[in-house]
Amino acid sequence: MDEFTLLARAVPDVPPPSAETVARARERLATRQAPARRPRTRRHWGWPVGAAVATAVVVTTVVIVSNLVGVSGPAPSPAAPPAFEQAPRAYKGLDHLAGARMPRSATKVSLRFRPSSVKIAIVVYCQTPGSIFYSNEGGSSAGGVCGPDGALSMLADKAHEPGWLGRDHTITFWVFPPDAPVARGRGACVPEGACEGKYDLTSPKTADRLAADLGERPGAWSVAAYDAPAAPAISPAG
C-alpha cells in the first residue's frame, strides 16, 4: 500500500483522484527517488596552481624581507664624546700628553705630565659655559673662565722658564659653576673685607673651602696637557 492509498483513506470525504492522475504522480515520485547519476568531471589544477603562485609570492616576499632585515651596511663610527667628558686626542696640532676628568663641578683633580717642548698647552673643557677654573702647582697659580670649547691655563707659560721642561709636573685644578661667589681679578679682596662674602681664589686652601661650602654641582669637565708630537727616531746607518 502506497501513500496515495493511505491519503485516500485518511480523507474519505474527498473523491479519489483518477487512475491517470495517480499513475503520473507515481511516475514523478519514482523519478525523484531514483539515485541521480553523477556526471563525470575532469580534474583540473586551477585552484592548486593559483595557491602555488600565491605561496611562491609569499615565500619570495619573506625571503626579500629577511634579506632586508639581515643585511646591513658598515656600522657607523661611534661619535666622539664631548670634550668636557673626555678631552680630545689632539689640540691645534699638538698631541694628547695626559688628561683627567670629573663628572661634577665644585670639584678638583690633579694632572700629572712631563712636557718636552715650550709648545706645551694645558686646556680646561667645561660643560657649563662661563664656569670658573683655578689651577695651582706649588707657588704658582692661574685661573680663568672655561666652556665646552676649552680654555688655556697660563701655567703652561712657565715652559719658557729654565728647568721647567724635562721633569714631571702635577697641577691641581678646581672648577666651579658660573654663579659661584668668586671675586674676579687679582687683589679684588684688598683691603680686607672688600670681597663682600666672595672667595678670592689665590690659594688651594681657599679653593678647597669654596668647594666644601658649595658641595658638588652639575657640570662635567675635563683637563688635558698637549705637547708637540715626538720626533721620529732615526736609526743609524748600518
Rank of each mutant, 00 (worst) to 15 (best):
G166F: 11
H96T: 09
R28S: 13
D95S: 14
P178R: 02
I132V: 09
A159K: 08
P148T: 02
A56I: 04
L7I: 06
C146L: 12
V14C: 04
G99P: 01
F4R: 06
G70L: 13
L210V: 00
L214I: 07
A80N: 05
Q33G: 09
G73N: 07
A237W: 15
V62S: 08
A34E: 13
L201Y: 02
G193P: 08
L29G: 10
P48Y: 12
G138R: 06
A237S: 15
C189L: 05
P236W: 05
A159D: 02
P74M: 12
R209K: 15
A54L: 15
D157S: 14
E192C: 06
G185M: 06
A237M: 15
H169V: 00
P15D: 02
Y134N: 01
V57R: 13
P177G: 00
R89D: 09
E137T: 00
D157P: 05
T128C: 05
P78E: 07
H44N: 12
P181T: 07
R28L: 13
H44W: 10
V175T: 09
S105I: 03
R209Q: 07
N136V: 10
H169W: 01
T206H: 01
G147N: 08
C195K: 02
S116N: 10
P82T: 01
M154C: 12
R112K: 08
D208V: 01
A142T: 00
R112H: 14
A237D: 14
Y125F: 11
A34P: 10
P12V: 15
A90N: 12
Q86V: 03
G46K: 10
P16L: 10
C189I: 01
R104N: 04
R42I: 15
S110D: 06
R184M: 05
M154D: 14
P229R: 11
A54P: 03
D168R: 07
A56T: 02
V123E: 04
F176G: 01
A83Y: 04
A79K: 13
S203Q: 05
A56R: 03
P76W: 05
H96I: 10
A194R: 05
P162M: 14
E192G: 12
Y91R: 08
G46R: 15
P218A: 12
P129I: 03
R26G: 08
L111G: 03
P17H: 07
V145D: 01
M102C: 08
K92H: 11
P82C: 02
Y91C: 05
V123R: 01
V223T: 00
V63K: 06
